[in-house]
C-alpha cells in the first residue's frame, strides 16, 4: 500500500503548487496533473470505471479552463487586509481539522468497510439485474432514481451555461453572434 501514500503526497504537492503559482496557465496545467494522479489512485484502489471517467472529465475540464485563462494573465493584488484574511482562514482550517480528526475515530479502519447495504448488491446483483459489472447494475438499476436526479442537475447546469454564454439579448442588427464554449 506504499504506492498509495506516495501518490497522495504527490497530489498534495500538486495542489500546493496550483495554489501558489502566480501564472494562471501554469496553475491550470498543474491541476491537470493532480487529476491524472487521482485517476491512477482510483485504478490502484480498484475502481476502474471511475479511473476512465476521471481521465475523460479531466481532459474536458482542462480544455474549458484553458479557454478561460488563455491570454488573460493578470497580476495578483496583495493590498487590503491580506494578513488578517490569511490568519482567519488558517484559524478556520485548524478548527475544521480538529473536529474532523475527532470524527475520523468513529470511522471503520481503512481496508475493512462495513458493507451492510452492499452485501445484498454483491450477492443478488447478477440474478436481479443481469449485469456483470456491479457498479453499472447499481447506477442503472438499484439506484436509478438517484441517477435520474443527478441527470437533472447535469442538464440544469448545461442550460445555465447556455443562458450565460449566449449574446442574443444585446445583439444589434448587423452584429454576428459569436460562438462560445459548449
Amino acid at each position: 500500500m506504499i504506492e498509495l501514500y506516495i501518490l497522495l503526497v504527490l497530489m498534495i504537492v500538486g495542489a500546493i503548487v496550483t495554489i501558489e503559482l502566480k501564472d494562471l496557465l501554469a496553475a491550470v496545467i498543474s491541476i491537470g496533473a493532480v487529476g491524472m494522479v487521482l485517476s491512477i489512485v482510483f485504478l490502484i484502489i480498484k475502481a476502474p470505471d471511475l479511473a476512465i471517467t476521471q481521465i475523460v472529465v479531466e481532459m474536458l475540464c482542462f480544455i474549458i479552463l484553458l479557454r478561460a485563462t488563455l491570454k488573460k494573465d493578470l497580476p495578483f493584488s496583495t493590498t487590503g487586509s491580506w494578513l488578517f484574511n490569511t490568519f482567519v482562514a488558517a484559524g478556520f482550517i485548524a478548527i475544521f481539522l480538529f473536529v474532523a480528526v475527532k470524527a475520523f475515530k468513529d470511522l471503520p479502519e481503512f481496508g475493512y468497510p462495513i458493507m451492510r447495504v452492499a452485501n445484498i448488491y454483491l450477492k443478488e446483483g447478477l440474478v436481479k439485474t443481469g449485469a456483470s459489472n456491479l457498479v453499472s447494475s447499481i447506477i442503472l438499476d438499484f439506484r436509478a432514481y438517484d441517477t435520474l436526479g443527478e441527470a437533472t442537475i447535469l442538464f440544469t447546469a448545461v442550460i445555465g451555461v447556455l443562458t450565460i454564454v449566449r449574446r442574443i439579448g444585446r445583439k444589434k442588427k448587423d452584429e454576428i453572434v459569436e460562438e462560445d464554449d459548449e
Binding site: 448488491y121 448545461v158 445555465g160 450565460i164
Partner: peptide, 28 residues
Amino acid sequence: VDPLPQALVLTSIVIGLATTTLLVAIAM
C-alpha cells in the same frame, strides 16, 4: 470492494464537470 460509493461518485464526477463549466462561464 464496496460498489455502492463507486456508483455514487461516478455521477458526482460528471456533475463536477458541469458545475465547473458553469463557474467558468460566469467568470468569463
